[in-house]
Design a protein around this nucleic acid. Sequence first.
DNA 1: AAGATCAAAAATATCGATTTTATATTTGAC
DNA 2: GTCAAATATAAAATCGATATTTTTGATCTT
Lengths: 238, 238
Amino acid sequence: MTVIAADTPEKTISERAYRMIRAEIVSGDLAPGAKLKIEMLRQRYDMGAAPLREALSRLSGDRLVLLSGQRGFVVAPISAKEAADIGNLRKILEIEAIRQSIPLGDTAWEERLITTFHRLSRLEEGEDQGIDTLDEWEKQNAAFHGAIVAACPSDVLLQIRAQLFAQHERYRRFSRIKTVRNRAIHDEHDRLFEAALARDVDTAVEVTGLHIERTTAAVVAALEGEAPAAGQGAPQPA
Amino acid sequence: MTVIAADTPEKTISERAYRMIRAEIVSGDLAPGAKLKIEMLRQRYDMGAAPLREALSRLSGDRLVLLSGQRGFVVAPISAKEAADIGNLRKILEIEAIRQSIPLGDTAWEERLITTFHRLSRLEEGEDQGIDTLDEWEKQNAAFHGAIVAACPSDVLLQIRAQLFAQHERYRRFSRIKTVRNRAIHDEHDRLFEAALARDVDTAVEVTGLHIERTTAAVVAALEGEAPAAGQGAPQPA
DNA sequence: AAGATCAAAAATATCGATTTTATATTTGAC
DNA sequence: GTCAAATATAAAATCGATATTTTTGATCTT
């Protein structure tokens, strides 16, 4: 979540590295705790060490990568405790962003809201499309929630919110909880959508709070059932 | 605010670069909007380009540096609007951290609290020592507020809080508002200290809220009186 | 066999040089 | 004289190579 002039469409190799590695960490392709050896990344992405190290440095600020003195980079490990912390914080900040956004949304904001909700609904209500529905759902889910807060005038808030959203997404995906065609989740999205359009801030806030709380609880439960902490012990391959 | 194994006492040049540049930006030695040319930094700090670029990459995640596609790095500009945003957000997060910290503070926490408050008080009540009291006050102020939230169990929260604290500090210093021997500020610190020791969360939260609100208002007023936005137009020398 | 010591291998961090891109300057046309 | 194109300059981004540090593995000792 580096601050970059919004108009930065991958002008540098470093930027590409940042996005690619970030995506792979969030999706779980790079497992929690996995060692990020420069040489291995060089081959994987076909670039020099410099842009990779810059990208990893930035990612460590996003809490997706851990940087340890002369010992290199590691994908941030995962724990049930942190899942809870992230959920709690994300709730607080998402709510604040919504409070600021909804009253200021203009026509373009409404239209974007409608579009993204529609796309998300199709996935949540339609027939199961098969394999990579999850990637697509995560994308549309992020777009929908992003649309709600898009009118929030505070860049600082939006940036931190986006950071937490990404961290939360990583946990959600890692925990393999059922999201894609989950009736309760879709109901909440639906209610959130209606409240936002109706400019009913209090309801939107309430629904969002519950939405995040429920998801977080499910993630924490899944992680606690599985193991106390993943990505701490023996190294996992990428 | 990169995630580094807490035990990282400047093992690398990159880490040193990060800390030094960060300190200079927060203190204002590197002015808002100033161009951060690699060659100039190389000479200033006597190191190669690689560690500098890594440090700057990390700083861009802290919103202290702005990174723009093939155009290099710039010290983040400041604006009255952002001052308000940061203050607002810092209030929310500081309060949350206090809520989590105070109930969990142990004996060591209490002792640290007492020590840091004492040191801060000496500066705020004692005779004016002269020139670099401000640096010292900022240091003790940070230590005191840090001590209050030190028992907060959420690393995520503490990290983001620290980020916002640094940003807020930069604005405070830039705006040149009177902090060091300000009666109102010392009163608030005093009340906050007592409330924390007494484990009176509600009072601590209330005082902190006011404390941050008042400071932020003063900063915003100072910035609005001065200029709409600093560090946007013609380049300022470092 | 467990532990310590040393040597070899691997990986990190950094440098100096090169390539690419942006900015400033000159030149020429109208 | 003003604008635009062409050129020169400066800076950013990246690479390949090297120095340093950590980790691994082997050897020796008690």
